[in-house]
């Protein structure tokens, strides 16, 4: 009996392993995605100066906490191609939905960022210039663009990795903002 169980073990192990592999094939699963350690934590402490030669003020944790309503924080850079596509969507969210949008300009040369904003327009209320990328690490970002929803109490409630371009992505952001507003 023992021997029979022993001989059947390899087949059993193979079946279990196969189950995991099948689960792993789920097309919605992205093996490269990193879950955020920040969601449901307070905004990390940081203070960033404005982007040089722009009129937009800089961004800090204190500023984010003092707003008192849900707000969107978008991490962007002029060298990031998908950010360009996302820019129009963010502008529309600000102009049509009245979303309050803050920006973190990540590992960018200030002059490039200023040109970029000049060319495409500036939907951001405040922009912090994170030219060395340190604050990016505080936020645990794994690339640009990334967008966070902060509720009225300064708690990070949602994170979106990648450009917000598809209608589904926009709906997710709106829903997250609405949920953040409902809580406060």
């Amino acid at each position: 009996m023992m021997k029979k169980i022993l001989l059947a073990m390899p087949a059993l192990v193979a079946v279990v392993l196969g189950g995991f592999l099948f689960w792993g094939l789920n097309p919605d699963r992205d093996p490269n995605a990193i879950p955020s350690a920040l969601v449901s934590e307070p905004v990390p402490d940081f203070e960033l100066p404005p982007v040089e030669s722009t009129q937009t003020p800089g961004l800090s944790a204190a500023a984010l906490r003092s707003i008192g309503e849900p707000v969107l924080v978008n991490v962007f850079a002029s060298w990031c191609v998908p950010c360009r596509a996302e820019h129009a969507v963010l502008t529309r969210l600000v102009e049509q939905d009245g979303v309050r949008l803050m920006g973190i300009n990540y590992m960018d040369k200030p002059a490039d960022a200023a040109n970029w904003l000049e060319e495409l327009g500036n939907p951001y209320e405040r922009i912090g210039s994170d030219s060395e990328g340190r604050v990016g690490i505080e936020w645990g970002i794994s690339g640009v663009p990334e967008t966070f929803v902060i509720d009225a109490n300064g708690i990070v409630v949602y994170r979106y990795v990648g450009p917000i371009v598809t209608p589904e992505a926009q709906d997710e952001i709106r829903a997250a903002l609405a949920a953040a507003g409902g809580q406060s």
Binding site: P27, N32, W79, C80, V81, P82, G143, V144, G162
Partner: peptide, 15 residues
């Protein structure tokens, strides 16, 4: 799939 492509673009950009 899309996110995979995106991260590739991102990687090249960040290099």
């Amino acid at each position: 799939m899309k996110s995979w492509l995106y991260s590739l673009v991102l990687m090249l950009a960040a290099t």
